[in-house]
C-alpha cells in the first residue's frame, strides 16, 4: 500500500505542474481541431459510403493522429523528471526517509504519473467529445470511451518509458535527453533501421509484397502497437501497420495481429519498469 501512498502524493504534486496544464490545453486544442476535421471529412466519407458506423471510425482515426504524437510527449514530459528530478533536488531523501522502499517509489511514481496523464487525456478527449457533438451531432459513446481507454493505456506505456529513463540517472538533463531519444528512436530511427534492414536483405526499399519480418518489426514500436490495439477494439484493420503496407490480412504474422498490439504495449510498459526497478534499487543516491 506504500506505493499507493507515494502515488497519491505524487499525483497531487505533479498535477499542479504548469507545463502539464499547458500541454493539456494544446492537446485539447488538437482534439478539437481533429474533431472539426473529422466532422468535415466524416461527412464526405459518410456521403460516399452512406454508413453512419463507419463515420465513428473515421472520427477516431482523425483523433488518433493528434493523440498519437501528443500523448507520448505529454507522458514523457510528465515522466522524465519523476525520479531524476527528485534525486537532483533532494526531495527523494524526504520520500525515502519515510517508510517507503525504492520499489514503492518507482511503482508509486508510475501509478501517480499515469493518473496525471490519464487526467490530461480525459480532459483533452472530453473537449474533443464536446467538439464532436457540436460539429457532428452524434457520437458513439461506447466507441469513444473504448478509444479513450486504449489511448490512456498508450499514455501509461510512455509514462513507464519516461519513469524508466528517469530512474537511471540523477541528472534531469540526462533524463530529458533520454526521453527525447525515446521519441527520436520510436518515431524516426526505428522505421529507418527496419527500412535499412529491408534494403540489406532484399536489395530494395519498395516491394510489391513486403516480407513478414518487415511488417512484424514495424509493428513492434509502441506507436504501431497503439494502432494495432485500436484496430483490435474496433475490429477494423485500418489502424494497423499491416494496413499501411496493404498486407493481406489473411496471413498476418502474429506480431502484426491487431490483438497482439496489447501484448506489445504491455511489454513496453513492463520492460522499462523492470530496468528501472533494477537500476534504481542498487543505485547510490
Amino acid at each position: 500500500m506504500s506505493a499507493v501512498t507515494v502515488a497519491k502524493k505524487d499525483f497531487e504534486d505533479a498535477v499542479r505542474s504548469r507545463k502539464l496544464m499547458l500541454l493539456t490545453a494544446v492537446f485539447a486544442l488538437f482534439t478539437l481541431g481533429g474533431a472539426y476535421l473529422a466532422a468535415e471529412f466524416g461527412e464526405l466519407f459518410g456521403e460516399e459510403l452512406g454508413d453512419g458506423a463507419q463515420s465513428t471510425i473515421e472520427l477516431v482515426l482523425a483523433l488518433q493522429t493528434s493523440a498519437g504524437f501528443l500523448v507520448p510527449i505529454i507522458a514523457l514530459v510528465v515522466g522524465y523528471k519523476a525520479i531524476a528530478g527528485e534525486r537532483e533536488s533532494g526531495s527523494l531523501k524526504f520520500l525515502l526517509g519515510l517508510p517507503h522502499t525504492r520499489r514503492d517509489v518507482v511503482v508509486g511514481k508510475i501509478l501517480g504519473r499515469s493518473a496525471v496523464v490519464a487526467v490530461s487525456i480525459l480532459i483533452g478527449f472530453g473537449v474533443g467529445f464536446v467538439g464532436l457533438l457540436a460539429f457532428v451531432g452524434s457520437v458513439s459513446i461506447v466507441d469513444y470511451l473504448l478509444f479513450t481507454l486504449v489511448t490512456i493505456l498508450f499514455g501509461v506505456v510512455y509514462v513507464c518509458l519516461g519513469v524508466g529513463v528517469s530512474s537511471l540517472t540523477k541528472s534531469t538533463s540526462r533524463a530529458a535527453i533520454g526521453a527525447f531519444g525515446i521519441i527520436l528512436f520510436f518515431w524516426f530511427l526505428w522505421s529507418t533501421l527496419v527500412q535499412v534492414a529491408l534494403y540489406l536483405v532484399e536489395g530494395e526499399f519498395f516491394m510489391e509484397e513486403f516480407p513478414e519480418w518487415y511488417i512484424s518489426l514495424l509493428s513492434i514500436s509502441p506507436d504501431a502497437a497503439y494502432g494495432s490495439a485500436i484496430g483490435a477494439v474496433f475490429s477494423d484493420s485500418s489502424f494497423t501497420m499491416a494496413d499501411a503496407y496493404q498486407y493481406d490480412v489473411g496471413e498476418l504474422p502474429l506480431v502484426a495481429e491487431p490483438w497482439f498490439g496489447f501484448v506489445i504495449l504491455a511489454l513496453w510498459a513492463l520492460l522499462p519498469l523492470a530496468i528501472g526497478l533494477w537500476a534504481f534499487g542498487r543505485a547510490d543516491l
Binding site: K9, D13, S89, G90, S91, K93, F94, G97
Partner: peptide
C-alpha cells in the same frame, strides 16, 4: 530522518 540537502515538494 532529517537528511542533508533535503528538499521539499
Amino acid at each position: 530522518i532529517l537528511p542533508e540537502g533535503v528538499e521539499t515538494y
